[in-house]
């Protein structure tokens, strides 16, 4: 009897949970739905909540007929992957050293990294613009990657450090007895064990690079290097009322995020809790 009741209760909770989730995600549904609705149907009153006469014209218009968006997409990939690789390259050894080696000024570095995450992007954008215009880094992928690393790098170090601390003590000593030096002990023994933590960091650094808007806005003056977020923003200004076209671009910009999200979900949840809560 009790068991039966608990089961019913569980099913009830599932239904309530599903309703909450679907209501909450309505904006995502509305985006995808609008992107496949013919433009004439968008202006019907009352609006259709379901999908009628689905069409992929908006996708054809913006990604096959007109190839401007493809360049923005390519730029976004270069910037996001660049941010990911550079952040991992810089952050991994640092996180290792901060976790396992005896360094002076360790706590100062940790506090700095924590504090940097709180800096507003706009506060960095202006001095970077002036600096970058002196060394020709405005309108360059490299400049945008460096700017995105301001946010990504401290996050990467802070999230990676605990995964190095979790490894058993004495690993390095054992490696040294086997003939490793400090560097090879790190690259051959420690690094392979930290791969899950590095995955989390890779996912988030990609997200930071892909989602960046403020540096794309302030550190570029030409379309040739601008990311997709800027492409979408310019689109809002140009085709203000062609909502199906706009939502098609938005959906495609969301696609890599959705794919990452489905494929690497457990790394995402881990990253959120690690990045905000632990030191």
């Amino acid at each position: 009897m009790m068991n039966r009741r608990a089961q019913w209760k569980g099913a009830g909770m599932t239904v309530i949970g599903a309703v909450i989730t679907l209501l909450f995600l309505f904006p995502v549904y509305w985006m995808v739905k609008t992107s496949i609705t013919p433009i004439t149907d968008l202006f019907s009153s009352p609006p259709h909540f379901g999908v009628l006469n689905a069409t992929f014209t908006a996708y054809y218009n913006n990604f096959i007929h007109n190839t401007d968006m493809l360049r923005y997409i390519g730029n976004s990939f270069i910037i996001a992957i660049g941010t990911m690789i550079m952040s991992l390259l810089f952050a991994t050894p640092a996180a290792y050293a901060l976790a396992r080696l005896d360094l002076k000024g360790k706590s100062l570095i940790m506090i700095l990294l924590l504090a940097i995450q709180m800096l507003p992007g706009i506060m960095m954008a202006m001095p970077l613009f002036i600096m970058f215009s002196k060394v020709h880094l405005v309108n360059s992928y490299f400049g945008l990657i460096l700017a995105d690393m301001i946010h990504a790098l401290p996050f990467a170090v802070l999230v990676l450090r605990p995964s190095f601390m979790a490894l058993p003590k004495g690993l390095e000593e054992a490696a040294k007895i086997d003939g490793c030096n400090q560097l090879t002990a790190f690259t051959r023994i420690i690094l392979p064990l930290a791969v899950p933590g590095m995955m989390t960091v890779a996912v988030f650094c990609f997200l930071f690079g892909w989602g960046d808007f403020i540096f794309g806005l302030t550190l570029t003056t030409e379309d040739s290097v601008r990311p997709l977020t800027l492409g979408l923003y310019r689109f809002i200004g140009q085709y203000g009322t062609e909502w199906n076209n706009l939502m098609a671009v938005a959906t495609l910009a969301a696609l890599p995020i959705i794919i990452i999200f489905i494929g690497l979900q457990r790394y995402v949840v881990g990253g959120i809790t690690a990045g905000s809560m632990k030191d």
């Binding site: 995600l25 938005a250 995020i257 959120i272």
Partner: peptide, 15 residues
């Protein structure tokens, strides 16, 4: 539900 948090803000804002 986390999807809402992960989407680039530009997308959310335009939707």
């Amino acid at each position: 539900m986390l999807l809402a948090w992960m989407l680039p803000v530009v997308i959310t804002a335009s939707v």
